[in-house]
Write a protein that binds this DNA or RNA. Structure first.
Lengths: 169, 169
DNA sequence: AGACGATATTTGAAGCTTAAAATAACTTGG
DNA sequence: CCAAGTTATTTTAAGCTTCAAATATCGTCT
């Protein structure tokens, strides 16, 4: 049962030794660091220059892409946040006159949320600045590097999605 | 002044047209999606299998790497969260017997936080599972792809860090 | 020593977030 | 039709998070 003071050869290792996944861990931590840095900076600038929170901006961004409006459930799936979360977020943005909520005609359970003209106008102004910030934050990557990164992240996304289904010890 | 029904050649375009940064935006959204998916899954599994929150796990992970302990300020910088945030987090983990806090001998303002034996033992168990989850989530990437992604993220991190300093419209 | 500026932490207010339970409305199979 | 199951949303409780203001301590300059 000895787990070996004696070093094992590579093949044996692959089968018998607990695998070392420190590289994947490092990769994950780096991914997380990049996202956290950028997200934090965007959050800070949105607050400073537009006095808006990032969640509100994200919500308005989704609605800007759907002129006809979206239900809370749709928003919840798109934004990957809980339903309950959206209830409060929508509530506050509706109170400030940025959002409109009406009951769906085909389904009286569902609320259809959309941007008001005010909400749309404010969002467009913020979005323009936001786009520049992002371009600047990624500015040191060449076009080629951006494409490579895009492709690798697409693969990462698929890998993660695959892992979400299959159970794992 | 016509913004052109006539297509401009590449060089003129670069100088005269408002630049289009939609590609960078897409890159950022994809980065964010990957992180959110993975983070959400890790959060869910930590709760399910260990009844622990992700912030607590992250805090313990930092402390596990510093056997001698760390101050709140150090933790705050490492974890990229606010000081006030850590106060509560540490408070709760200390209450459950996972953390030790003692006043620094050299600086009576500073609290030195460290894992208790219980905290360390529980963390090590969680960390082992966590490492497997991460390896599995990134499992579809070849070694080569992992290396490329690592390198591109390193460059992204440097780019973002550079942009954090320089002001930007 | 005393005052000033910097650093470490805590507190308070507001808002975000989740999971789980509750409510309401829809849909489907008898 | 109606009961059972599903789906859309809200509510609740707990915890996370930030920013800004308040405390406390440190280090230094005079």
């Amino acid at each position: 049962m000895s787990q070996s003071a004696i070093p094992l050869d590579a093949e044996t290792k692959a089968v018998e030794m607990p695998e070392d996944h420190r590289d994947e861990l490092r990769l994950w931590l780096r991914l997380l660091t990049c996202t956290t840095m950028i997200e934090g900076e965007v959050r800070r600038r949105l607050r400073e220059r537009f006095d808006v929170t990032l969640p509100r901006f994200d919500l308005m961004a989704q609605l800007d892409k759907a002129p006809e409006g979206m239900t809370l459930s749709d928003l919840s799936k798109r934004m990957m946040v809980s339903n309950g979360n959206l209830t409060g977020l929508v509530e506050r943005l509706a109170a400030s006159g940025h959002l409109d909520r009406r009951t769906s005609e085909s389904d009286r359970r569902a609320q259809v949320i959309s941007l008001t003209p005010l909400g749309r106008a404010e969002f467009r102004a913020m979005a323009a600045a936001h786009e520049h910030w992002i371009a600047n934050l990624f500015g040191d990557l060449t076009r080629r590097e951006q494409e490579d990164l895009m492709r690798l992240l697409a693969k990462t996304k698929m890998s993660a999605r695959r892992a979400l289904g299959g159970e794992n010890a």
